[in-house]
């Protein structure tokens, strides 16, 4: 097993809806998608965003796009115009998620350029 960052095997885009941020996490290769499904769980994401996201986390699967969508609740300091945050729209939560470290098989790790 090898420890990697999600940045190595996925890309992402994030946005907002009120005080909820969404992060779409997309596998860089089809082979990486099952690892995302297995390792990037609701619990792992909740733990990862500790201190930044104060509410619950929801996860949705899009196997057709080899992607997962996460909803991070109570994440934007009230959201929209109310929020005092630099990133009131959660635009950078995409790369925040890609900081997460997971373990993957060596065979898969070899596919990382």
């Amino acid at each position: 097993m090898k420890t990697i960052r999600l940045l190595d095997i996925a890309h992402a885009r994030s946005g907002d809806k009120g005080d909820t941020a969404n992060v779409g996490l997309i596998a860089r290769r089809p082979e990486f998608y099952p690892v995302l499904v297995e390792r990037v769980t609701v619990e792992a994401v909740k733990r990862h965003f500790d201190g930044l996201v104060h509410g619950g986390v929801e996860r949705f699967e899009l196997p057709n796009l080899e992607a997962l969508n996460f909803l991070l609740h109570e994440a934007l300091g009230g959201g929209g115009t109310v929020s005092l945050k630099t990133d009131a729209q959660g635009k950078t939560y995409s790369s925040a998620l890609l900081r997460m470290e997971i373990e993957i098989d060596d065979d898969l790790a070899r596919l990382i350029p």
Partner: peptide, 25 residues
Amino acid sequence: KEQLVYEMGDPKAYITPDCVADFTS
């Protein structure tokens, strides 16, 4: 793909006044 997941909620139920679109399709 990056744009498709932008501001997404439940991908099976993207609700507009015109329909409920299924992004998993």
